[in-house]
């Protein structure tokens, strides 16, 4: 079963994502902060990561950096979902190796799910 890890500290956003992704038949696990996310990624080695940027303990940028430094984890695609929408933040995340970046409030959830499917099929 294809597994997806969601790193997101806002419970209701997590719930919306979980419900949608489970309906598509994915195995969904979640982490509520950056440190937990790293641990779970190491343990579960998910097929894809949905990463929030503003999280307690360790922010998404730090998580991304750590993942890309780890040879075992660096190939897992990471889609950033954040409400930080400045060009600066988007550029930084993409430079750190994020596959894509969604400003949450600007995209319907259906678009995010479509993107997840595409990335998992190996399309960009």
């Amino acid at each position: 079963m294809i597994s997806i890890l969601i790193a997101e500290d806002e419970e209701f956003i997590l719930r919306a994502l979980e419900d949608n992704l489970r309906q598509e038949g994915y195995d969904v696990v979640s982490a509520k902060d950056g440190e937990e996310a790293i641990e779970m990624i190491k343990e579960k080695k998910p097929n894809l990561i949905l990463l929030d940027l503003l999280m307690p303990k360790k922010d998404g940028f730090a998580v991304l950096e750590e993942l890309k430094r780890n040879p075992e984890l660096r190939l897992i695609p990471v889609v950033v979902l954040s409400n930080l929408g400045s060009d600066h933040d988007i550029k930084r995340a993409l430079q750190l190796g994020a596959t894509d970046y969604f400003v949450k409030s600007q995209h319907p959830i259906a678009e995010v799910i479509e993107k997840v499917k595409k990335v998992l099929r190996g399309e960009k």
Binding site: I13, R15, N83, L84, S105, I109
Partner: peptide, 17 residues
């Protein structure tokens, strides 16, 4: 504005679902 966006995007996604 950032703080407002978080609940707003949450509501959006929940209602869309």
């Amino acid at each position: 504005s950032h703080q407002l966006r978080t609940p707003l995007s949450g509501i959006k996604w929940l209602i869309e679902t």
